[in-house]
Computed example of a mutant assay.
Amino acid sequence: MEILTENPSLVLPPSIATIGCFDGVHRGHRYLIQQVCEAAVKRGLHTTLITFPIHPRQVMQADYQPQLLSCLPQKTALLKQLQADYCLMLPFTHELSRLSAKEFMNMLHEQFNIQALLIGYDHRFGHNRSEGFQDYCRYGKELGMEIIQAQALIENGVSISSSTIRKLLKEGNVKDANHFLGYSYYLDGKVVNGYKVGRTLGFPTANLRPSCPDKLIPEEGVYAVHVYLKEQRFAGMLNIGHRPTLNNGSDLSIEVHILDFNADIYDQSMRIEFVQRIRTEQKFTGLNELIEQLQQDRKEVRKLLLE
C-alpha cells in the first residue's frame, strides 16, 4: 500500500474508494476494506482508502479529547498490512467540513479519480448529516460515480465498531476488545522515573509515559500483559490507577512489574500488550495486605501467561 498526502500534482488511477477514520483498524474495518478490494477486482479498478491524519472533531472542537484506539503512526502501520493500493491522508479542514455530500463526492471524483464509492452501512458525510445512502446514490448517478453499500461485520448481534471497542476497554474488558480488534490492544512509550515504592515492596515496576497522549487508557485495575523491550517479550503485571493504598493522589500511573526481570530500563522504549484484567484497583488497610494481594496477582499472571 502506498500512503499518499494531498498535493496539487497527485494523480490516481481510476479507483474504488471507501472513507473513514479507521480508528484502531479493527476487524470491522478490515471486513469493509475486504469488500472494497473484492469490488475493485470485479470492476477492474484500483483501491483507495480515504482517511484523515487527525480526528475531524479535533478540528471542529478545540477541547475535544478523542480517546483514540490508534494514533496516526499506529494506524498507518496497521493500514499498511492490508491489501489496498492507496491510502489517501486527506487533511480535514473547516473548508472541507462545509462541503455538502454532493460537493465532497464531486471533489473525490474530479480531483482523485474515484469512480466508485463503497459506503459503510451507517456512514454519513458532508455538511448536511441528515442525508443518507439513497441521497448518495442519487448524487453518484448525477456525477457518474457508482455507489455501493457495504455490509457490517456482526457477531452475536453486536456490530464490530470503534465505539464498541472503546466501551469494552473503558470497562476493562480487554479480552473481548482484543477479539474485536483482531490483535492485542497496546500502549507504547518511554520508561520514566516513578515513585520507586514498588522495589521496597519486592515488586519493582517500570512506569510508562505513553507516546500518544490521545490514546485511550483502559479502565483502572491490574492486568496480565505482555511487555516488549528491544523486540524481547516478557510476562508482566500491569497496574493502571491512582495507587490509593500509597496515597498517590490524583496522578494516574501506568506501571508494570515484569516477571523474572531485573535490569535498568529507564528511558527505553516499551510496548505493553493487554491480555486480561485480573482485578479492579483496591485500597488496602496497609502495606502487608497490599503485598499479599500482589503476590496473589503475580501467581495468577504467571499461570495465565507462562504455564
Results as ranks from 00 to 15, higher is better:
4 L>G: 09
6 E>Y: 12
14 P>T: 04
14 P>M: 03
25 V>H: 05
35 Q>D: 12
40 A>V: 04
46 H>M: 07
47 T>A: 12
68 L>C: 07
71 C>R: 05
72 L>P: 01
74 Q>M: 02
75 K>E: 08
78 L>G: 01
80 K>E: 15
81 Q>E: 15
82 L>D: 07
84 A>K: 03
90 L>F: 14
93 T>K: 08
94 H>E: 13
95 E>T: 13
97 S>A: 15
105 M>F: 06
105 M>D: 05
106 N>S: 12
106 N>M: 10
106 N>A: 14
108 L>H: 09
108 L>Q: 07
114 I>F: 11
122 D>Y: 08
125 F>Q: 07
126 G>P: 09
132 G>P: 03
133 F>C: 04
134 Q>P: 00
139 Y>V: 06
140 G>L: 09
142 E>L: 14
145 M>Y: 05
149 Q>T: 04
156 N>P: 00
158 V>K: 12
173 N>G: 02
175 K>S: 12
177 A>Q: 02
178 N>P: 09
182 G>S: 08
189 G>M: 08
190 K>W: 05
204 P>R: 05
206 A>H: 07
208 L>Y: 03
209 R>I: 03
210 P>E: 09
213 P>F: 03
214 D>V: 00
215 K>V: 07
217 I>V: 15
219 E>M: 10
221 G>P: 05
222 V>N: 02
225 V>Y: 04
227 V>C: 11
227 V>K: 03
231 E>D: 15
235 A>Q: 04
235 A>D: 09
237 M>V: 09
237 M>F: 02
237 M>Q: 02
238 L>E: 01
242 H>L: 04
245 T>G: 07
248 N>M: 13
248 N>W: 08
260 D>S: 13
262 N>I: 00
262 N>F: 12
265 I>C: 09
266 Y>H: 14
268 Q>E: 15
274 F>I: 01
274 F>K: 01
276 Q>D: 14
281 E>N: 12
282 Q>P: 01
286 G>I: 03
289 E>T: 10
291 I>T: 13
294 L>N: 04
295 Q>W: 00
296 Q>F: 00
302 R>K: 13
